[in-house]
Amino acid sequence: MTDPMREILARWKAAFDGHQADAMAALFTADALFQGFGPEVLSGRDAVRAYYAAVPGDRTADVTVVATYTVGDRVAGGFADVTFRDPAGWEAPVHLSLVLRRDEDAWRIRQYHVSRVVTAH
């Protein structure tokens, strides 16, 4: 079995870097819970699609998987460090945690949460 976390994050990065909101939404379960940079928890693919459609098209993401786990053959997840960037020099490092669920045909993101990394206290 491949590592579900690495598999889904490779697909996520390709869709994010390509600014493909429909492809991003397809990575999530229909009932996904999503906590991005905004103050509200979003729910469902349509909300995820709208969130990513609003991201500027010149942003990319660098992804480093930190830890992964599996629970049986239908649940997996883990943590990654992600830095979002744009060509003008803007960047936002975050910790990303995912809970994945295996549907009939593929792994999908059931829960997505980013936490901005702040180095100054």
Rank of each mutant, 00 (worst) to 15 (best):
T2Q: 08
T2G: 08
P4S: 11
M5D: 01
M5V: 05
I8A: 12
I8H: 07
L9Q: 11
A10Q: 13
W12A: 13
K13R: 14
K13F: 01
F16V: 00
F16H: 01
D17L: 01
D17Q: 10
D17K: 03
G18C: 08
H19P: 05
Q20K: 14
A21K: 06
A23E: 11
M24P: 10
A25K: 09
A25E: 05
A26P: 02
L27H: 07
F28A: 06
F28W: 14
T29V: 05
L33I: 05
F34R: 08
F34E: 12
Q35N: 08
F37W: 06
F37Y: 03
G38D: 11
P39W: 07
E40T: 13
E40W: 07
L42E: 07
S43N: 12
G44R: 01
R45T: 05
A47N: 08
V48Q: 10
V48R: 13
V48I: 13
R49N: 07
Y52D: 11
A54W: 04
P56L: 02
G57N: 10
G57A: 14
T60D: 07
A61S: 13
V63T: 02
T64E: 13
T64H: 11
V65P: 02
V65Q: 03
V65I: 06
V66L: 15
V66H: 10
A67I: 00
Y69N: 15
G72C: 07
R74L: 10
A76K: 03
G77V: 02
G77E: 06
G77Y: 13
F79E: 15
A80F: 01
A80D: 12
A80I: 03
V82C: 09
T83E: 11
D86N: 15
W90S: 15
E91C: 13
P93A: 06
P93E: 03
V94S: 12
V94E: 12
H95R: 15
H95Q: 12
L96H: 05
S97T: 14
S97G: 12
L100N: 08
L100F: 03
L100T: 04
R101P: 02
R102T: 05
D103F: 00
E104I: 01
E104N: 12
D105C: 01
D105T: 14
D105Y: 03
A106D: 15
A106R: 15
I109W: 10
V114A: 10
S115H: 00
S115V: 00
V117C: 03
V118T: 13
V118L: 09
T119F: 08
A120F: 13
H121Y: 14
